[in-house]
Each structure stands twice: as C-alpha cells, then as structure tokens.
Nucleic acid binder design. Structure first.
Length: 424
RNA sequence: GGAGGGGUGGCUGAGUGGUCGAAAGCACCGGUCUUGAAAACCGGCGAGUCGAGAGGCUCCCAGGGUUCGAAUCCCUGCCCCUCCGCCA
C-alpha cells in the first residue's frame, strides 16, 4: 500500500508515476471519496466526542448522587445519529481501502519505461553459451532418454503442469536444494527458515497477492475458513515480521527458505506447456531481507549478487536484466531478473527475480522498527529474490551439461551432494 | 475429539461497568551524583489516525451485541497453555 499521506498530498503526481507501470490511478474518484471521507469523519468524530463527554458527565453526576434522568434524556437521539454517521463512514472507508489496496507500488526512478518483457534492459552478462558440436536436446528429451523425468505419469496422478522425477534426476533436483541452502547460509549470511506451505488471507494481503490476484492461487477450504497454498516462500517468510516492531539492533533480517511453490498459472494457458519451465508445483530456495529503509537499495544489489553467485558456482551462463515499468510486479519498486542460458530453447530464460518492495509491503504488514534516534517506530523495507528456482535450475543443468550421447555431467559444485557421482 | 485455564503497551503483569489509554515492574531516553561507569535518586516514555495548531477520534486477540457509557457484561470465531483420548 502506498503512503496515504503522499497520495492525498499530490494524487496527480502519484498517478503520473504509476503510468510507468501502466496503472491508471483514478484521481478524480479518489479526490471525491477523500473529500467525503473527511467530511463524514469529522462529523462522526464530533458526535463521538459529544457522546463521550456526556457519558462522563452522567458518570460524575451518578457518583455524586444527582438525578441522571434529565441527562439521559439529552443523549437519547445521539445514538441513532452516531450510528448513521458511522455507517456512512464505513462505506466510504471501505471503498477507499479497496481502491488503495489495488494500487501498485510506485516504480523507482531508475526503472526503464516499457510495455512488456521485450523492453527489459540488459544490465550485464556472465559466461558464454556453450557451442555444441551436436544438436543439443531439451530437458524433456533428455529426461525421457534417462527414463527419470516423466510428465505423462504426473498427468495421470494429477493433471498437466506437474512432473514425476525418479532416480538420479530426482537426486540431482534434491542436490540443488541442499547446495543452494548451504551457500546462502554459510557464505551469504542468511538464516535458514522452515515455514508453513499454507497461509491465511492476512498473510497474502500483507505481501500483496490479495485482494487482487486470488485467481493465481490454489485455495484450500478448511472448516469455514480458507487457506491458500503459497505461491512463493516470500509470503510466509516476509509475514514473519507482520505486526511486529523489530529490534533495530537485529537488522537486517536475512532469511532463506526452501519451499514448494504452487501457482494456478491461470493466465498462462498455452504458454510453456512443454517440460518443467512452468509448473503448478515447483521448488524454490528463496532469499528474504527485512532492512532499515535507507538500506534497501544496497540490499537489492547485494541479493542480486547472491543469486548470481549460485549460477557462477554452477558455471551456468546468464544475464541480468532490469524489468521495465510494464513488466514490474505489483508490489515491487524495482526488480532484476536473472536469465539463464537454455540450449534447448536457444535463449535466456528467467531463473530468478529479485525485488525491492520498499515500504509497500511493510505498510500492509505493519512491519516496523524503532528508530534509535527518535525512539519512534518506522516502517521497514522488504526485499525478496529467488536463490534460485530449483526446477528451472535443473533444466539448465540438464541442458547445459549434456553430452552427445545424452549423458549429463554433474557440475563440480554439486558432486559432493551426489555422493561423488560425476556423471549421470 | 473431551475437560479446564488464558489472550492487556517493546516485555512481565494489575485492572470485572464511569474521572482507565490503562497500576506496578523491567527495558528505553533525559538529568543529578561520579575521574568514567555501575548503583541510587528525579523526570519522561504505547500505537494509529484526523487537524496548520489547540486538540479530537480509534485501539486492551478478532467480529457482532447490551448500555447514556465496555479492557470489564453477553454471543461467535481465532490463537495459546494444562489434562485425557487419538495420531505421522
């Protein structure tokens, strides 16, 4: 959520900045509602004030043994008036809240203008895509050849967009998780976290998936409530600080977590239908940082480096792009995507996304820390990034490390996690 | 699933219808004292929101209700603790 003070002070400026994200902020409707809100709120609060004052007088009168009947008569009509005012205020506030909860974060000045992913801007490249002296296969063909990556069985068990892995490939998949967690905890200073894979509505509101993007989520009815399968560890991990005043001395908080992620991919029918690139269920090792406001831009660069380090250790060629306004996520002020080279597709594909949410999530979460100078609680900044998406990393390893006969070299960094196996 | 006890400020914890946003302690901040620190003593100290300000309003798990007035009474839900049962 944006700072309502800023929106009120200059709605036109906010609207203009949101244009970069191709979001049309309804300035007129907002101003209209704001004016009404102000009016009704003042009226309501005046009535409340009157009620409070008179109730106190009644209390005093009663204590001193006076007759309170005349005083009671005076307040008789107050209740109805107050109820009416309150109801009106509630309606206006609800509409304003709905409006503001649906407004995305303002993109940072450094975010390039653009429509979609084609307008993202490359920041740097690392490594050189390997040149093959044979026709490289994609991971689906490789997996089939090994008999260890099976989409048809998964479709029988569940449906499309799931995978069954067995044997060495299943182990390689697991090795990637362990490897990444170890790097993040021992080399990058993250604290490992284990979190629920189902969350409540409040958590999803806190990080911004709700109320707007419910159709992307898998819902789990539970009694008369509703839980949701997490679409990313960002949700449970970032919500650790919801409604908390964090001890400033403990900042920055740096968490890493391995979780499965569940996405309905509602808007992606027909997109990436082959293989493991876009699944309803996939694993991810996530990085989350909760930092003091002034530190978040440095943290964004740092976290991008942490994700890159994994790819470098795996010796997988990649490039880093900065997302343009049109491709930027709802809660994000700035996002870097890291794209890994996939020989099977002959192009770079997203394998990590690192975002600075500034105070946008923190405001919804009420995640604060006391400023040591002033003693006052101030909003924190939250960031998250994949470090990395496991399924896509597996795809990258299979495709980049394939041999002419279909065997897969095991990257050196993963060999300790594969019991010393060098080839599968 | 059954029985009971609880959810109050950063923390511990008092408060069972009125002058309670809320005792006390801890923590924290300022001061006195001290070469410095500690201790002791004095003072300050919840959050959010509206307002230029004075000040107002809201918040004692959440949502309803009773009442002129609710932290306090009633209803529903959620969460935590103890015991019994079941269980990976």
């Amino acid at each position: 959520m944006l700072d309502t003070k800023i929106v009120r002070a200059n709605p036109e400026a906010v609207a203009q900045q949101l244009e970069k994200k191709h979001f049309a902020f309804p300035v007129e409707r907002f101003n209209e509602l704001e004016a009404k809100r102000r009016e009704v709120q003042v009226e309501t609060e005046n009535l409340q004030n009157e009620r409070n004052t008179r109730s106190k007088m009644i209390g005093k009168a009663k204590a001193s043994g006076e007759d309170i009947q005349p005083l009671l008569a005076e307040v008789a009509s107050l209740g109805d008036k107050l109820d009416a005012a309150k109801q009106q205020l509630n309606e206006i506030s609800a509409e304003l809240d709905d409006m503001l909860l649906g407004v995305p974060n303002i993109p940072d000045e450094s975010v390039p203008f653009g429509e979609d992913e084609d307008d993202n801007v490359e920041v740097r490249q690392w490594g050189t895509p390997r040149s093959f002296d044979f026709e490289p296969q994609d991971h689906v063909a490789l997996g089939e050849q090994h008999g260890e990556l099976d989409f048809e069985t998964a479709a029988k068990l569940t449906g499309s967009r799931f995978a069954v892995m067995t044997g060495k490939i299943a182990r390689l998949h697991r090795a990637l998780i362990q490897f990444m967690l170890d790097v993040q905890t021992t080399e990058h200073g993250y604290t490992e976290a284990y979190v629920p894979y189902m969350v409540n509505e409040d958590s999803l509101k806190g990080t911004g998936q709700l109320p707007k993007f419910g159709e992307d989520l898998f819902k789990v009815p539970f009694g008369d409530r509703q839980y949701y399968l997490i679409p990313t560890a960002e949700v449970p991990v970032t919500n650790i600080v919801r409604d908390e005043i964090v001890d400033a001395a403990k900042l920055p908080l740096k968490f890493t977590a391995h979780t499965p992620c569940f996405r309905s991919e509602a808007g992606a029918s027909g997109k990436d239908t082959r293989g493991m690139i876009r699944q309803h269920q996939f694993e991810k090792v996530e990085m989350v940082q909760v930092v003091e406001a002034s530190q978040s831009w440095a943290a964004l660069e740092e976290m991008t480096g942490h994700a890159e380090a994994i790819l470098q250790k795996l010796n997988l060629p990649y490039r880093v792009v900065v997302l343009c306004g049109g491709d930027l996520g709802f809660s994000s002020a700035k996002t870097y995507d890291i794209e890994v080279w996939l020989p099977g597709q002959d192009k770079y594909r997203e394998i990590s996304s690192i975002s600075n949410m500034t105070d946008f999530q923190a405001r919804r979460l009420k995640a604060r820390a006391r400023n040591p100078e002033t003693g006052k609680p101030e909003l924190l900044h939250t960031l998250n990034g994949s470090g990395l998406a496991i399924g896509r990393t597996l795809v990258a390893v299979l495709e980049n490390y394939q041999q002419a006969d279909g065997r897969i070299e095991v990257p050196e960094a993963l060999q300790p996690y594969m019991g010393g196996v060098t080839e599968i």
